[in-house]
């Protein structure tokens, strides 16, 4: 009897765990009004950006850039490159940041 009770309690516990996991999965749901336009990964973010000095950069003088100075270090991101990648995951010194446009 006790064994059966233990087993049924375990089963109940297991079901509860499933329920809890189920609600965890629910938390992962997409945001309200979310509309998937392109498969994820189509617009590849840049995770390990590389740079050239200003003297070597081939940028039209009138092109727009997103400029940033962090810990005294200036960096520039062409807006047209940002358009294609949306996000650059970057670090300057101790600052981990994402350039997004």
């Amino acid at each position: 009897m006790n064994l059966r009770k233990t087993v049924s309690m375990s089963a109940l516990g297991f079901a509860l765990v499933l329920l809890v996991n189920g609600s965890d999965a629910a938390v992962q749901k997409q945001p309200e009004d979310y509309e998937q336009i392109l498969p994820r990964g189509t617009i590849a973010a840049i995770n390990n950006p590389t740079y050239v000095p200003a003297s070597e950069a081939m940028v039209a003088p009138s092109s727009w850039v997103l400029g940033v100075v962090i810990e005294g270090q200036p960096r520039a991101y062409s807006l047209t490159l940002l358009n294609s990648h949306e996000v650059v995951n970057d670090t300057i010194g101790e600052t981990n940041f994402a350039a997004v446009w």
Binding site: P49, E56, P61, G67, V68
Partner: peptide, 24 residues
């Protein structure tokens, strides 16, 4: 992080001649 500023390359380069530039 309020560090970003959009401007034309010629102005940014003049303001920060030591800038690095993203290359893809």
């Amino acid at each position: 992080l309020p560090y970003g500023e959009k401007m034309q390359w010629r102005h940014w380069k003049k303001k920060h001649p030591d800038t690095l530039v993203l290359s893809v």
